[in-house]
Nucleic acid binder design. Structure first.
Lengths: 231, 231
DNA sequence: TGTGAAAATTGGTCAAAACAATGAATAGTT
DNA sequence: AACTATTCATTGTTTTGACCAATTTTCACA
């Protein structure tokens, strides 16, 4: 005898599913306003409480923004609301910081490896080249350098065109910003690190442009280790 | 004049923070049961509604399990509850499947690269060797082979000892299971793929044991492409 | 026409009650 | 005594209705 367990779906989950489906098939687009809670409750023939639970969950999921007095608006999927509540919980031990740094390294190395392997044209990497060129100009301005540094890495992920990768990257950077106990700007100001870091980015870019994946990964790995060592 | 906006903290967020803090500092351990909603409401001097909102949010966050008639139990941090609701939303297009597969590839390649670079002893990889040995024995049993295949890759992530990596890996596998439109067992049954896949795992293991990171990554990459091609 | 007060709209919180699922205590049967 | 079915207490789920707070809209008045 083989029977599946009958699971009574909770109401709020049902509501979430319905609304997510509407977003999925395009009936609800980003920026659209949902009907007021009271109306939704009537339409769905459930209590306002259940509707509110569903909306709250979707808010945490990062696909809805709820504003008192205004209403609920569909927003771009964004993991930040979720993370902002969850990160104290997942960062219970100091060990996680080490893991996160290694994880980021894997992401960055993997991204650049896959990018290099694609053998794209020099034109394709123009946005990256612009950033590197700008870096050279502001080489002594720690603050601007840090901004370009961040841009460089973000640009890499964007060039992969992989949305999952970008979401996870955002996720990691978001947490690292709030946990890693160091100041990037301060690190860039001391020694001649500004010069060194500029050269590292330039090297990475050049290996990438010629499609040398091994070299690109090696240089990215070196760069990340260097940044970490001076922070 | 510099003033911060006075933001009236929503009650449920306050509750979540308090409980997360209790988990964080060890007052609440995994497996502990929270007081009933009615008691919590009384202790916090708020309504049950607010308490329920907080608990619901923590359930979605994956740090609490709520069971009717039983109570709320603190659980290990787990992204599945969140994902199970979010994945239809973030998997809006077919493109995401491609992205996920590439993302997994980056994770697997990165893990094995970092593992190989550590230069661990052969003893360290014993659990992996056992799996490979078992694979050889059941080479014609597609179902068992698939199970060992999964074990092999999971074992790799465990050997890294990186919890973040493992969480994300679980995350990816969880979604892929529910989306990628193919049957792994069926794929293993046709042709002589069983033999081929066994050899690929063996090759990966051997490159790993001798600490040849480049070769290990190359073989892993090849293996993942192969599996995908026959699926 | 412009301004400010009042009203309507909408989300946030509270309270009380009935419902449903679970587990423990209890009574009944063998 | 051991097993089974019932009953009851506990606890999460849902509903209803009310009131508060923030925001927007309406509209009367200057």
């Amino acid at each position: 005898m083989e029977l599946k367990t009958v699971q009574t779906q909770k109401i709020y989950k049902n509501i979430v599913e319905q609304i997510v489906d509407l977003i999925h098939d395009g009936s609800l687009k980003c920026g659209d306003r949902l009907p007021p809670e009271r109306t939704l409750a009537e339409l769905l023939n459930v209590s306002r409480t259940s509707v509110r639970e569903a909306l709250k969950v979707m808010e945490i999921m990062g696909i809805l923004e709820i504003k008192p007095g205004e209403g609920s608006v569909v927003s771009d999927f964004n993991v930040k609301p979720f993370l902002s509540m969850v990160w104290p919980a997942i960062l219970a031990d100091k060990n996680t910081e080490k893991d996160l740094l290694e994880f980021r390294k894997i992401l960055e190395e993997g991204s650049i490896r896959h990018l290099a392997l694609r053998g794209e044209s020099e034109e394709f990497f123009k946005s990256l080249k612009d950033i590197v060129d700008n870096m050279e100009e502001v080489i002594d301005d720690a603050e601007k350098s840090v901004k370009l540094d961040i841009q460089f890495h973000r640009c890499l992920f964007e060039l992969t065109g992989n949305n999952v990768l970008m979401q996870v990257q955002n996720f990691v950077e978001y947490i690292l910003e709030r946990t890693v106990s160091h100041n990037r700007t301060a690190a860039l100001e001391k020694k001649d690190s500004g010069e060194a870091i500029f050269k590292q980015h330039k090297d990475i870019y050049e290996a990438l442009v010629v499609g040398d994946s091994l070299l690109a990964v090696k240089r990215m790995s070196y760069h990340l280790d260097y940044v970490q060592s001076i922070s």
